[in-house]
Amino acid sequence: MNRRDALVQVIECLHAEIAALKANDSRALERATSAKLGHIDMVAACDGEPMTDEMRALAHEAQRLNETARIYVNLMAANVRRRLQSLAGQAVTPYRATAFA
């Protein structure tokens, strides 16, 4: 498999991860993540191939989708934390963005 094909597969796996996150399907998430990691290894194995504009665009798309998946995970974690705080009788603090220096 060449780098381009591996990047396309990474993108497909990221779409599957996002769909699994939206559906709260942990088994599908595990399968998609495992497949994604395998394809990332394939991308890394093609390190000697020159980067084309198409491959840069595919890598950028993969990064964008990975960021989207990260945001879903963070939102889900925040919701779980708030729910656990509520169940424990702790004051639930509203979300507020914090600035990092």
Rank of each mutant, 00 (worst) to 15 (best):
M1W: 06
R3C: 05
R4G: 00
R4H: 14
D5G: 06
D5S: 13
A6R: 03
L7A: 06
L7C: 07
L7V: 06
Q9N: 15
V10L: 11
V10D: 08
V10S: 03
I11Q: 11
L14G: 12
L14R: 11
L14V: 05
L14I: 05
H15T: 09
H15W: 07
H15F: 15
H15V: 04
A16W: 02
A16N: 12
A19R: 15
L21V: 00
L21D: 00
K22D: 15
K22L: 06
A23P: 04
N24S: 10
N24W: 01
S26G: 07
S26E: 14
R27Y: 08
A28H: 12
A28Y: 08
A28T: 00
R31F: 13
T33Q: 15
S34P: 07
S34W: 10
A35N: 15
A35V: 11
A35M: 13
K36F: 12
K36V: 07
K36W: 12
L37T: 06
L37S: 11
G38L: 11
H39Q: 10
I40N: 12
I40F: 09
D41Y: 10
D41N: 12
D41V: 12
M42R: 15
M42E: 13
A44P: 04
A44Q: 15
A44R: 14
A45I: 09
G48M: 09
E49H: 14
P50Q: 05
P50S: 08
P50H: 01
T52H: 07
D53M: 14
E54Q: 13
M55D: 15
M55P: 04
M55G: 02
R56Y: 04
A57F: 07
A59D: 04
H60F: 05
E61L: 12
A62S: 07
Q63T: 12
Q63A: 13
Q63K: 13
R64I: 11
L65K: 11
N66P: 05
N66D: 09
N66G: 11
E67W: 01
E67R: 03
E67D: 11
E67V: 05
R70G: 14
R70W: 03
R70H: 13
R70I: 09
R70K: 14
I71D: 08
I71W: 06
I71V: 13
Y72A: 00
Y72F: 13
Y72C: 01
V73T: 11
N74F: 11
N74L: 10
N74W: 04
L75E: 09
M76V: 04
M76C: 05
M76L: 13
A77I: 01
A78T: 03
A78M: 03
V80H: 01
R81E: 09
R81D: 08
R81T: 10
R82K: 12
R82W: 04
R83E: 02
R83H: 02
L84V: 07
L84A: 02
Q85T: 04
L87E: 05
A88Y: 01
A88W: 01
G89Y: 00
G89E: 00
G89C: 04
Q90H: 12
Q90Y: 06
A91W: 02
A91F: 03
A91P: 03
V92H: 05
V92P: 04
Y95I: 13
R96S: 08
R96L: 06
R96D: 05
T98Q: 13
T98I: 13
T98M: 14
F100P: 00
A101Y: 09
A101Q: 10
